[in-house]
Design a protein around this nucleic acid. Structure first.
Lengths: 190, 190
DNA sequence: CGACGCATGTAACCTGTTACATGATTGG
DNA sequence: CCAATCATGTAACAGGTTACATGCGTCG
């Protein structure tokens, strides 16, 4: 499991409440790990019961109180040990991949291409966002060290993955456009 | 859910038994979808109960009988409808991303770099395998059409993702090597 | 006060993972 | 006949998803 460890990393960067963590997992952490607030609250409760983290109730201006969590010694140990464990490569799991492979079994192949074009638009939008964040938050990457360098490099990974998706899906769409316009296999199209 | 649909795609390519499907999900389907035999048998049973697929028991030479499944009309309809549904972009979820981001909270940063180098080796190995498969199975990609073109393009996606991982992890490792060798921020290293 | 938003949860369900179980068939 | 292998499962559990619930605080 890694949600617990992702939470530990985020809390070590800065103590936070459940809802603040939820926001983080929707933003920066989101390029490589996503989680809903229900997962987060459930996991926070277990982690506190296990003594990995500790909470303090903090009153807020204009909002209900929050429970702010911070990493306990036990949690820091657990995290440090986990970080140096070998990680098995995560197998990719993509709905879209299944659709690309199965496209010829849809009644209408063009409809599948539209699905692909929709995803292309999503990935373009996210790529633009990441690039903008990168420029704003890290104007001079060559000066970065330590945790800041890590945050930068992980954002770079998000950018690279979006570029990868766009490259792949573009290749898919153009290959099919070319295959349907020209027909060098006349015995099949007649 | 998509395991059912992945199975439908695979069965439409060719009818198969549970164990044959398991082998496929370990190989070609594996670049974008993985599944264990338990998942597959469980799902096959439900799909047959729902009338999406039908099975015939086939005796084999030198091995126990197998139950060979094929797609029923209902299954073909379900698949065709699913293929043209818009797909939400799958959020990435990577243990390694969490480790890269949290590397400064390990006692020993070099130990985390070793984890990254281990993954790099895995991705290099898989990239080599995919490239070899691509060359063998699709020597003349520009002639491909229909389902064969899809199989080729999905394999291309697998190759692109491996290249993406290698590019990212290499950037990560070299950036940290440079950051630790030179020290343009002397106030931090003294 | 009543509607709304925010922070924190609970509950039910589904998927995926891990470990174990059964019967059939060959090879020694 | 016994061990090994293959094909097909069962059972128990952990993690993720979806829908709903509660209590507090502000704003109108």
């Amino acid at each position: 499991m890694a949600l617990e460890h992702a939470i530990l990393v985020s809390l070590r960067e800065r103590a936070a409440s459940g809802s603040e963590l939820t926001r983080r997992f929707d933003k920066s952490f989101g390029y490589f790990w996503s989680a809903t607030h229900q997962q987060i609250y459930r996991t926070l409760a277990r982690m506190e019961a296990d003594g990995w983290i500790a909470s303090v109730v903090v009153p807020q201006q204009g909002k209900p109180d929050t429970k702010v969590y911070d990493v306990a010694d036990r949690g820091a140990e657990v995290l440090a040990a986990w970080l140096v464990e070998p990680t098995p490569a995560t197998p990719l799991r993509s709905d879209l991949g299944v659709k690309l492979r199965g496209a010829s079994f849809a009644g209408d192949r063009d409809a599948v291409l539209d699905v692909v074009r929709g995803q292309l638009a999503d990935h373009h939008a996210r790529l633009d966002l990441y690039r903008q964040m990168c420029k704003q938050q890290f104007p001079e990457p060559e000066l970065l060290r330590g945790a800041d360098l890590d945050r930068y490099l992980v954002l770079r990974g998000g950018i690279r993955f979006e570029e990868g998706w766009i490259g792949w899906l573009t290749e898919y769409v153009t290959a099919h456009e070319m295959a349907s316009s020209s027909s060098p296999l006349p015995q099949k199209d007649a």
